[in-house]
Amino acid sequence: MSRITVEICVGTACYVMGAAELLSLQDAFPSIEEEILSFKGTNCLDSCTNPTCGKAPFVRVNGNILHAVTVESLKKTLHHELERLK
């Protein structure tokens, strides 16, 4: 089990709204080992059908669901998480 798990929702709504690009973000952290940071696609998190959850795409980082995630915002979040591990 990695210390930071990034689960990217690849349900249709998230995929259309840019989740496909988030999956390629793993390449942005080449020196981080998989034991520390792991990326994976996940089936629909069912957040998209609930308007109070915010906007697609959704990503779960260590159990917390983030909404309207972009490559930019996810990079920021993960750098922050990595910083906390130090």
Binding site: T12, A13, M17, C44, C48, T49
Partner: peptide, 12 residues
């Protein structure tokens, strides 16, 4: 894609 999102259709 926008139609699928609007209709909340999950392809899988």
């Amino acid at each position: 894609g926008a139609m699928l999102v609007a209709k909340q259709i999950e392809i899988s």
